[in-house]
Amino acid sequence: MSSSSQPKLSARERFRVRMIMGSADVVGPVLLVVGVAALLWFAANPAQLEALLRMIFPGRRGYLYERASLMTLLGEHLVLVAVSGSAAAVVGISLGVLVTRSVGRDFLGIVRDLSSLAQTFPPVAVLALAVPALGFGFKPAVVALFVYSILPVINNTISGLEAVPPDIVEASRGMGMTPVQILLFTELPVAARVIIAGVRTSVVINIGTATIGAVVGAGGLGAIIISGLVRDNYALVFTGAVSAAVLAFSADWCFARLERSFYIARSDR
């Protein structure tokens, strides 16, 4: 990176430039916009969707899911992911911060183990356990997704914070920052890239896994997939799976961009 040729730019502006330059390959964004636009258009025009599916899977009946529109399912899916994902991000980052403080350091091992353990549980099993306590519907699905997607957030938060060079923490302390200021001004900004990467992984996994929410009646794109599987109707499976894939790709791309806007640790450069 030769930045000496652009001395007029502030550090922040240079980050912005780097962000735009990073997306200089236009294939990604174009595919993304086309994909999302197509998804929304077909969701808003069921007749066109049916025509398309008829072309791909000729000679069947019942191309559309009759209990809810694709738009509704997309909405339900996004709400599931948003609620469980943001809860996992907030709780995961908080836990990661907590166990890297001197007061919480004793819990570092336990939290790491527990979050790994949570990841080994199949989400369906978590659902099965959650249903007796929370009943059917939205709640048990959110709990299962939350438990399942918290691991990458915790792991990356811990790794990111532990990779902050000790000398800059020492310097921050020596300049008279309080522990909270050290966390906010020094540790989190330096670790941000790694932490965002964890959230990115978490959200992408979450979008895929959210399809099983349908098992307990939480709706979402899983409803259409399961219904299709039960009825041997591949048009339905296809609609649900492709929609979920478009969502996952878009989320991944957006987070990748967000990630790039943060400071890059020297070793990654």
């Binding site: 310097a171 008279g176 640790a265």
Partner: peptide, 19 residues
């Protein structure tokens, strides 16, 4: 913290905040 804000501190590794 107040004490340290009133005393300049320079260390070998400098410790400039990289971001």
């Amino acid at each position: 913290e107040e004490l340290r804000r009133g005393i300049g501190y320079v260390i070998q590794s400098v410790g400039l905040l990289p971001h």
